[in-house]
Amino acid sequence: MIELQDAAYGYGADPLLSDMSLRLAPGSFHFLTGPSGAGKTTLLKLCYAELLPTAGSVRLFEQEAKEMARDDVARARQRIGVVHQDCQFLDHLPVAENIALPLTVSDRKTGDEAANLEELIAWVGLRARADALPPELSGGERQRAALARAVIMDPDVILADEPTGNVDWEMSLRLLTLLIELNKMGKTVLIATHDLALIRAAKAEVAARVLRIGGGRLQLAGADL
């Protein structure tokens, strides 16, 4: 689905990321960990083609990212749900409309989809907050709304960038449970986090592969996780 082969990103002789090789197989569950500033967000951006590699290859759904036309990138993004670290909401639209945004922009906001939207809002526990504006939400509510938006298009892959960064432990576990549920429904999940406790909690529930990013390189994490 998403495959990086010796991908690098950065400028000059000292790139931020180099020799990144990663394959997100269908139905797999990955954690991407590493210290702040190690390049986790950059790696995720490569995975949904917001950035293009300066060397190596990134393939999205069998297409080379560098060669994809802009509309192909848009179509690929409809198959990749992304939970951004800062959520990326349109603050002037209510939560429900923000969650429905991927449907709206792909002209798929039909009656059936509207029913699914209701269900989805209930699933993330935001029924009472559906008409609120994003700035009125708490950190946990924002992250749940972002997760709902990420899955509204029934994507094949879900990429989450520090989805538990601004929430308490209880909310972190709730979000993790939602992501595990999605994986059990067949979705490929990649979570970038520096929260090792969250990774340990997940490993009890799901067969997750943990990758560590450091020094600009990607490696499989050891048994300490």
Binding site: R70, A74, V105
Partner: peptide, 15 residues
């Protein structure tokens, strides 16, 4: 910023 968000959620240029 709005355009960036629209692109991120899969909007095509035409939209």
């Amino acid at each position: 910023q709005i355009i960036r968000v629209l692109r991120l959620v899969g909007a095509q240029d035409n939209y």
